[in-house]
Each structure stands twice: as structure tokens, then as C-alpha cells.
Design a protein around this nucleic acid. Structure first.
Lengths: 160, 160
DNA sequence: GCATATTGTTAAGTTGGTAAACGGTTTTCC
DNA sequence: GGAAAACCGTTTACCAACTTAACAATATGC
């Protein structure tokens, strides 16, 4: 075991000198996997998953939002959003309400339960990030946020 | 169209003030989606995908690495690596070589073709990141890399 | 030598999506 | 006013990228 573990540690240290470690993309993915796993662990088995939480967040902050609009904000297809909204509706956190002027759209309206669940989840998610990222200073977190948003901007320019 | 687009832009700007935008996790995911899409677009239809590229990178830099070791370095399960190695073997970029001392392991050895393909892919990936991230200064990229690696560290500590 | 661990692999399931098509509805544009 | 186009939510079929559990073959610890 000692011999094997020595080899293991050598390899892990060598990672630092690897081509791979120099790429933003690779590090983004690895970091995301780490954060996502901790998110799920913190919110628990039956808690909201990251995408459902994100959707609920936007529904709470933009009540009466349409599904198309929500999908666009989340950067996914309309068809992909259906299951997410079904989930939230199934939990009783929102309703699909008909809109007076336009019978195509269904406005997503958070229920009182949904509002309460969102506040709890919001607290839990903040706690998860605070704990997981306790190694980073407030400045570092702010910088990271800013840089990540800058990357997303590259995307919007391409599409424009 | 103008009215609709005005609504669209309002909503997009409003995102900046959203709970969601304050979370590292959400921004990590969105940024990763952006980068990954550009990676694939740059390397083309039949080019290497990000995970296959990553695997090849480690095989080139650690020739004779075992599949278990490679899986551990990539942070995935052994079973999940099989398809990736199959892909690389199918392209003729590596061979599964038997190892003298231990008949369980199969050392992954890059072929000359694999070495060449890796160098080309490496150039392409560098070009992709340089182009996509041209808004970021060298300093910003370095900072981002450092912060992302710091997040991955949180993970290793948990497991230790 | 026997129990235990490890390696690569398969099989089946899960997650988180996309693309294409649909019926129902609205808007556009002449 | 009416046809063509666009838009909304949805279903269906698909895909990628995993995971878990089991397996046979092999190696190791005591």
C-alpha cells in the first residue's frame, strides 16, 4: 500500500504541472462538479436541485414570468423547462396561471408555499457556498463572480 | 418585435440584480456551458470532445498510466473511463498494453498518431481559449485559474 | 492458503439536457 | 379580412456523461 500510495501522491502533485491545469475550461468543469456536489449534499435528498432552485428563484423574482422567458433566462430550451416547472408545480411551489390577453402563455406564479420554500432554500444555498468557499476571501469571491460573468458575456456577443 | 425585445432587454438587465447572479455555483455552470460549447465548435464535429481531450492529455503526459489512475486523476469512476479509452483506442491514439508485473492492469500508451493528434488538439484548444477569453487580461486569466483551483481544493479536504 | 482488495469491464439506471414536430393561438402584413 | 408567419407550451425521441452494482481475473496480506 505504501508503494502504491507514494505513486499516487507523486501523480497528484504532478497534476500541477500538467497542460490540463492551465486551461480555464478544465478547471471550470472540475470546480463546478465540486460545487454542485456540495449543493446537493447541503440541500439534501428531497431538497431542490440546482436547476430547480434557479428556476424557482427567477419565478419568485419575476412573478408571472412566462415559460419561454424563463427558459431564455436560464439558457435552456423551452422543452427542457417543462420538467422543471412540472417539478415545482408538483411540489406546490408555483401554479401555471392563464393570462388574460394571450391564451398561449401560462404565467408562472409562486404560491405562498413556494415563497416560503424559496427563502429557506436561499438560506441553505448561501450557507452551502459560505461553507464550501470559506477559503476564499470576500474579495476573491467578488473577483471570481466578476470574471465568470465576463466569460458569459463572450457568449452573448457571439450570438448578437 | 420592438416591444418584445424591449421586454427582453429589461429582463436581461434585471438579471444583474438577481439573487442567482450572486451565486458562484450558478455562474460557474453558465460559464462552463459557454466555454464547453465554444470548445466543441472550435474542435469541430469529429474533433475530440473535452473529456476525451483531457484523457488524452494525461495519457501523453503520463504514458503507461493505468485506467484506474487516470480515472482518479479525472475525478470520474473507472467504469466511466472505459468509453473514453475505447474512443481514443478506436481513433488509434493509444493502445492498451499489458504490464509485466501485474496482469490486471493495462497500461495506456499513446501511439505516434496519438502524440501528433494531441499536439494539434492542444494548439486548437489554446486557440479556442485565447479567442473566447480575449476580453480577459493575462492577469485575470491567471487569477481565475488560481481561484478555480482553490475551489477544487475544498473538495480534496472534505474527502481527506 | 484463504480472505480481501484491485483492475478492467459490462449492464442498467439517472441526470440534464437537445431537436423536431404538434396543436392552439396570436401577430404581421398586405 | 385573410393568409402566412411567428410564438407558446408540450410530447416524443434522442443524446451525452456520467453512476452504481455486479463480475471474472488477478494480486496481496497475514
Amino acid at each position: 500500500m505504501t508503494r502504491k500510495q507514494a505513486g499516487r501522491l507523486d501523480a497528484e502533485q504532478a497534476i500541477a504541472a500538467t497542460d490540463l491545469e492551465g486551461f480555464i475550461g478544465y478547471n471550470l468543469k472540475r470546480a463546478y462538479v465540486t460545487v454542485q456536489a456540495d449543493f446537493r449534499a447541503t440541500l439534501g435528498e428531497d431538497g431542490l436541485g440546482p436547476r430547480v432552485f434557479s428556476a424557482l428563484s427567477l419565478v419568485v423574482q419575476f412573478p408571472q414570468i412566462s415559460q419561454s422567458e424563463l427558459a431564455r433566462m436560464l439558457g435552456i430550451e423551452r422543452s427542457g423547462l417543462v420538467a422543471i416547472v412540472d417539478d415545482l408545480e408538483g411540489r406546490g411551489y408555483l401554479t401555471r396561471a392563464t393570462v388574460p390577453g394571450d391564451r398561449r402563455v401560462q404565467a408562472l406564479v409562486p404560491t405562498p408555499d413556494g415563497l416560503g420554500a424559496y427563502q429557506s432554500a436561499l438560506d441553505a444555498v448561501r450557507q452551502h457556498e459560505d461553507r464550501l468557499l470559506s477559503h476564499l476571501t470576500a474579495d476573491e469571491k467578488q473577483t471570481l463572480l466578476h470574471l465568470l460573468q465576463k466569460i458569459r458575456q463572450s457568449d452573448r456577443e457571439d450570438k448578437a
